[in-house]
């Protein structure tokens, strides 16, 4: 395991200039996620129309892995049907948490986060926003 496995250029770029790092005024759903042991915290905003994820954004403070993963998530889930977005999120969490999970070919930029599988201490950083997304869409009361 080397530093290049985890700090890939693409992640550092997302950390520096994250996508959709903004408050969403017209969010239909939102949730706060934090990792009390280390201090990472994100709020994920979601706009759902007709069971389709129309927009995802996030705010918060976290490490490079947390921020890059949140940024990649916002683009990945956009324009997916709600069931598909849930599926994709659960699969991605599973992929990072369980190293025996087979790596799918359609990961795209998310592939850059696979290095986290070699750094179990950073798993929570990489999945925090994804968990918050799941929480947001299951939270009826916003």
């Amino acid at each position: 395991m080397s530093l290049q496995d985890i700090y890939q250029e693409i992640l550092l770029a997302h950390n520096e200039n994250p996508n959709h790092f903004e408050f969403m005024l017209d969010a239909t759903h939102q949730a706060y996620g934090n990792n009390p042991l280390c201090g990472d915290e994100v709020t994920v905003f979601v706009k759902i129309e007709n069971d389709v994820v129309k927009a995802v954004s996030f705010m918060g403070e976290g490490c490079a892995i947390c921020k890059a993963s949140s940024s990649l998530m916002t683009s990945t889930l956009c324009e997916l049907s709600l069931p598909k977005a849930i599926d994709k999120t659960q699969q991605f969490i599973q992929l990072l948490s369980d190293t025996s999970t087979q790596i799918p070919d359609d990961l795209g930029e998310l592939e850059a986060l696979l290095g986290v599988r070699k750094f179990p201490a950073r798993l929570k950083c990489a999945t925090l926003a994804w968990h918050a997304f799941l929480k947001a869409i299951t939270d009826e009361h916003r």
């Binding site: 530093l3 990472d40 490490c63 892995i65 950073r122």
Partner: peptide, 29 residues
Amino acid sequence: KIHPHDVATIVNDQNIALRAGHHCCQPLM
């Protein structure tokens, strides 16, 4: 511009063990 966790992970690569986070002192942080 480098989050404490990232500092800790990078120095660990050089076999340096130190701690990053709020150290169980959230009000102090």
